[in-house]
Amino acid sequence: MTATSGGGRAPVRRFGKLIRLRPEHREEYLRLHAEAWPEVLATITACHLRNYSIFLEGETLFSYFEYTGEDYEADMAKMAADPVTQRWWRLTDPCQEQTEGAVPGEWWTPMREVFHHD
């Protein structure tokens, strides 16, 4: 994760995270994300996340997003408190398994940004 100037606004913070996709849930996970719920997408936007992407390689999921708000922890708490997002996670979380590098309090394993160029 890194910060860059946003022209007088809060700095843009970039995040990369990893998690393992359980092979037996692959098709379900892909179907859910092909039909992502509009309410979940609206919450992502309301919590100041943009350019949110999830990539798949083998059994590894890689997520990337940019955070444009001013209080990441508060926005993530807001997302976690959203009832529709909670229902979404009850469907998607069983499809996933934490990686060996997981840290306490984080479902997805955070990655360290080592290079960025605008």
Rank of each mutant, 00 (worst) to 15 (best):
T2H: 11
T2M: 09
T2V: 13
T4P: 00
T4R: 10
S5A: 12
G7Y: 09
G7L: 10
G7D: 09
G8Y: 10
P11A: 11
R13S: 09
R14S: 14
K17W: 02
K17C: 06
K17M: 11
I19Q: 00
R20S: 04
R20P: 00
R26M: 07
Y29S: 09
Y29G: 10
L32A: 08
H33V: 11
H33D: 00
A36R: 07
P38I: 13
P38A: 05
E39Q: 15
V40K: 03
L41G: 15
A42S: 08
I44Y: 10
T45W: 05
T45E: 13
A46D: 12
L49R: 15
L49H: 15
R50M: 05
N51R: 15
Y52H: 12
Y52A: 10
L56H: 08
E59D: 15
L61M: 13
L61A: 15
E70M: 05
D71W: 06
Y72Q: 07
M76E: 15
M76G: 11
A77R: 14
K78A: 13
M79I: 13
A81P: 04
A81L: 06
P83D: 00
R87Y: 01
W88F: 13
L91R: 15
C95G: 07
E97F: 01
Q98A: 05
T99N: 01
G101A: 07
G101N: 02
G101V: 07
A102E: 04
A102S: 05
V103G: 00
V103S: 00
V103A: 01
P104D: 12
G105H: 04
E106I: 02
W108S: 02
T109I: 05
P110Y: 05
P110T: 12
M111Q: 14
H116L: 13
H117F: 10
